[in-house]
Design a protein around this nucleic acid. Structure first.
Lengths: 329, 329
DNA sequence: GAAATGCCGTGAAACGTATCATGAAAACCA
DNA sequence: TGGTTTTCATGATACGTTTCACGGCATTTC
């Protein structure tokens, strides 16, 4: 019961069982061992309550069975869902997850990547906001929604298709004039394809549209100016709004309601990500749902695969989610 | 550039610097070292790009600088916030966090605790749902909101006070009849004190109240029956509702709206936890905010403290949060 | 029935680090 | 200056595991 009853080691088990150290190891690792010997060892393990020591194993094998997930935070529900599903996917493969919150801080992203080099993790899954990140080449690295180079696997859903989906949906809802809002300037980002897809579909359908994008660092209030400048006679100049992120959509809806513009009566609003407040609840905004679970699964299977460089960027299908129900396209 | 350029070790640094192995170690660990020697070592480290190997260090010291946080999931925003703040508190102390999702599964809770014994973590912070959990006595263990015994530190906010706060608030809002809803039967739970505090304050103020508690496993629809049975002439029999959790409150509000009962016009609803949809957004329900950050800080400082057994259960002050603004009581 | 083959138990050797006892040099004191 | 203390570099050791070469034993093969 003492706190420092130092835990039994494999040597203790070997002594207790009257076998060699190597035999104990073979039993533990499921290597072929004679039945009698196996029994002796297993009983000794049970008697002593032996548990393997992870540090020793890791030191010897060089494998930590741990993957780092670098993500801004867990407050944004979309990130929270990613964390959740990545963890599940890792656990399925007997791996642990080391969570690294960057808080959108570039320096911290770099720190975490350094950390990986201390043999703390076997690989890294990263959702970063630094387009100039230097990706280490000596450790498996997978990005979510950020394309760096052909040699760095990038997992993303069909952002272009999702954007087009949003446009078609607005049209189907009877909108005659649309607008697109997005924060973040990095045009090589995968998510920027949502805009491209939206524009492409609008053009194709002959739906007029406007685009308003905020650079990183620009004040959020710019959006308010944009919206206000489009109001005449208490009416918004457009009746359909596609917003790059549910997070942003929620903010915008607040803004609109503050201007006495009703959603969805006066303007249809569609977000992106598929965030729901809790597990099985109605969405706060109409949204294009990202297949979070598939994204997580793809990240994990890629980061754990040996032939990393051969894995192409993955593409998942987006799903539309609207007031009250889910529709797959 | 090759993937297997095995990383430089302390021995390599020592050779490069022309000093002894122990000297390198002393430099790295900030022990007193002669200036000339220190310089030589530091330069060698830089030249070789040396990074310490965590497994070796852990094996030697027995310290992993990692704390496990056992929590049902990260989907519930309250949990997500806990994860976030615990991680921040750990990082402040140069510790890592190992996240363990139980999904409310008792077996998995036990598994994770076993894992800790493999020297994977230095301590455990747990938010469990198994009242019969056996707490290991050979590893620092801190619980959130669950009291097991005097020897297991339990961090909880002032649940009794929070419950009383909710009652007073309903009264202040002009309610003349109240009800309390809660899921989960474990009466020794710290959160059950919310009910006690509520009842106590109602009694004190002469505010009539009803209590409806769902046992674990009972169908959620029981709540619907309860609510329906309190409706006469399209009017609810009470005009104030205190609900043990924001999660539940949100569900109940959905239910109420489905019955054409308006919130807050027909009935005032107050939840508990202080969940907000995103970082700085309006709450979905009125709620008693838990001081998540302080709770996290208390957990971490307790689990990392040596004189664990001497630490009493901590208590934090609750804060009231209502439509549009925050009020401290 | 002897040689060849396969099976599997053995003990030693690493993995990379922190620490400890040792001893030498430097600093201090009288 | 001689003795005593302090400072600090050294090299060996141990942490707990996996793996590897070795060899003993049993089973097969012609």
């Amino acid at each position: 019961m003492s706190k420092q009853k130092n835990a039994p080691t494999m040597a203790d088990v070997a002594r207790e069982a009257g076998v060699a150290l190597g035999t104990v190891s073979r039993v533990i690792n499921g290597k072929p061992v004679g039945k009698a010997f196996r029994n002796k060892v297993e009983q000794a393990i049970r008697r002593l309550g032996y548990q393997y020591n992870n540090s020793g194993r890791t030191l010897r094998t060089g494998k930590t069975n741990t993957i780092a997930f670098i993500v801004p935070n867990t407050i944004n529900p979309y990130f929270a869902h990613l964390v959740h599903h990545i963890n599940i996917a890792l656990e399925k493969r007997d791996c642990k997850m080391l969570l690294c919150f960057t808080e959108y801080d570039t320096d911290r992203e770099a720190e975490f990547i350094q950390m990986a080099r201390q043999k703390l993790v076997d690989g890294i899954i990263a959702l970063t906001y630094n387009p100039d990140l230097t990706i280490p080449d000596n450790i498996p690295f997978v990005t979510i929604d950020r394309f760096f180079s052909a040699s760095v696997p990038c997992v993303a859903s069909d952002n272009f298709g999702g954007g087009a989906m949003a446009a078609r949906r607005l049209k189907a809802l009877g909108c005659t004039s649309a607008a697109f809002l997005r924060i973040g300037s990095t045009l090589t980002n995968e998510p920027s394809k949502r805009r491209e897809g939206f524009i492409s579909a609008c053009t194709e359908m002959g739906l007029p549209y406007e685009v308003m994008a905020l650079e990183d660092g620009q004040p959020f209030s710019e959006f308010e100016h944009f919206l206000r400048s489009h109001i005449t006679d208490h009416r918004l100049a457009f009746d359909g709004l596609f917003i790059g992120t549910d997070y942003l959509a929620w903010e915008i809806i607040k803004l609109l309601r503050g201007m006495n513009i009703r959603v969805p009566e006066d303007v249809q609003v569609i977000g992106f990500d598929g965030i729901r407040m809790f597990g099985d609840q109605e969405p706060v905004v109409s949204t294009i749902v990202q297949p979070v679970q598939e994204i997580a699964e793809a990240c994990v299977s890629t980061v754990l695969s040996d032939r990393l460089s051969a894995v192409p960027s993955l593409t998942c299908l987006a799903v539309r989610y609207l007031y009250g129900g889910t529709t797959k396209e």
